[in-house]
């Protein structure tokens, strides 16, 4: 079983990495979602694989840790799932905004955006630029 989990985590990671190396925003968003699955599964698995022992107390005395799976990774992953939703939402909106604003969903910076003004003195920019 351990091998199945590890191989699935590996496969999902590979797919995620491949997708984030694409040139369009949507593919990158999908890749990040895939990576999220893999990483959350990995974090969860740090508590090791335990079947049928949910961390919900059966009694209030003589608690034996061997009767339950490790609850701590679960708590961490639970918030991680929700936070990664927030992250996905922000990234999607950024991708959408870039597409609407620029009419293009390329992820690379356009070449003409990279041209920097030549620097003669250190105070080239006008103060309006700073306050704007």
């Amino acid at each position: 079983m351990e091998f199945l989990v590890a191989s699935a985590v590996g496969a999902i990671t590979a797919a995620g990495i491949y997708l984030i190396l694409r040139l369009r925003t949507f593919a990158v968003v999908l890749g990040m979602t895939m990576l999220t699955y893999a990483i959350n599964a990995f974090l969860f698995a740090t508590g090791r694989l335990v079947v049928n022992k949910p961390p919900i107390l059966l009694g209030h005395s003589n608690i034996n840790p061997a009767d339950y799976t490790d609850p701590l990774p679960q708590a961490l992953v639970l918030t991680a799932i929700v936070i990664s939703f927030g992250m996905t939402a922000v990234v999607v909106m950024m991708a959408l905004g870039a597409f609407i604003e620029g009419g293009d969903d390329h992820i690379n910076m356009p070449d003409d955006d990279r041209i920097m003004p030549t620097l003669k003195t250190l105070d080239d920019q006008k103060p309006e630029d700073e306050t704007a």
């Binding site: 351990e2 191989s7 590996g10 797919a15 491949y18 090791r48």
Partner: peptide
Amino acid sequence: IATLAGLGFGGLTYAMLRRDFAFPTIS
């Protein structure tokens, strides 16, 4: 690159799953 990363992460997962905790957990 993606395959390498997948193998690495999958391998790490497998290696971890086959070993017990190095330190007693706080759980």
